[in-house]
């Protein structure tokens, strides 16, 4: 089972939820931090990093000796990553999506592959809990390819928890796509609600069952709760604003470490998710 943990915006406590859920469930889970622009789950889970791997994506390189400047490569590239001008072929490798189309279409076989570094993957472990994160190369513009690489390393025998990047654009979709459940984390404030709505729309498009964790639940207004009811979005856990929780966070400690009674609440959160996922799978079978 794959569960992605997302939020419409940053700073709602998404990482707090993902790391506490991870530690509460123990070594039957693995945590994949897909917030590759600013990974921070490791700061709280504190895994021991055992291996670091560089990740590249293939981009074209043109041999001008062979090239006849026929422009076929430019025409096939949907991403405008190639420009044939005069006796030059410019490659804008940061726009390239590595589809390989230009290489296939080149009649002179003038195009070969070279690697563009996307970033690194870190593999680690905390008390038997497997941990992976991706760290995007500074200056790299596209995060989805690296997010896909992080996810490609998931272990299907484990329950996979994915810490998704904030926002609602391509990187988040790359992190949520093909998961069994999306756990949305929000705050009961007007800004929180606004971003939650965008996230819910994205999840609906993907057709994945979702549920809500409300963080700092006793601050703010009732609007989030009304919205959740209206959208049929179950509230699976409420985390109150608690000085002890805030203190634990500021010391980089997890709630379940400092306040053991929370371990059960996070396990309960998982059990509710499991029930919903099994029910929606049963429904899918019944319908097909």
């Amino acid at each position: 089972m794959i569960i992605s943990i997302a939020s419409g915006k940053g700073g709602t406590g998404k990482t707090t939820v993902s790391t506490n859920l991870t530690l509460a469930l123990g070594d039957r889970v693995e945590l994949l931090d897909c917030d590759v622009e600013e990974p921070n789950a490791h700061l709280f889970l504190k895994p021991e990093i055992e291996q670091t791997r560089r990740v590249e994506t293939p981009v074209p390189k043109v041999d001008l000796e062979k090239c006849t400047f026929c422009k076929k490569c430019q025409e096939i590239c949907r991403f405008n990553a190639l420009a044939v001008v005069g006796k030059q072929v410019l490659v804008f490798s940061e726009l390239c999506h590595s589809c390989g189309g230009c290489m296939l279409v080149c009649p002179e076989k003038a195009i070969s592959e070279v690697g563009r570094e996307l970033g690194v993957l870190n593999f680690g472990n905390r008390d038997g809990i497997r941990f992976i994160n991706g760290l995007m190369r500074v200056g790299e513009a596209m995060s989805p390819p690296l997010i896909k690489q992080v996810r490609a390393n998931a272990n299907p025998d484990k329950i996979t928890l994915i810490d998704a990047p904030p926002g609602t654009s391509c990187p988040v979709i790359a992190a949520m796509n093909d998961t069994d459940f999306v756990l949305l984390v929000t705050e009961p404030t007007p800004f929180g609600l606004h971003d939650l709505k965008l996230a819910v729309e994205a999840v609906k498009l993907l057709g994945i069952p979702a549920g809500l964790v409300v963080n700092r639940a006793d601050l703010g207004t009732d609007d989030v709760y009304r919205y959740a009811e209206q959208e049929n979005l179950p509230i699976l856990l409420s985390i109150p604003f608690d000085r002890r929780i805030a203190e634990a966070y500021s010391r980089g400690k997890l709630i379940v470490e400092e306040m053991p009674e929370w371990r059960e609440k996070f396990v309960g959160l998982f059990e509710q998710i499991e029930t919903i996922v099994n029910r929606s799978k049963a429904q899918l079978c019944a319908n097909s």
Partner: peptide, 15 residues
Amino acid sequence: NAFKGAGIQAATTVC
């Protein structure tokens, strides 16, 4: 309506 790289296309047209 190009998603990205519209300027590159326009530039090749100009050339």
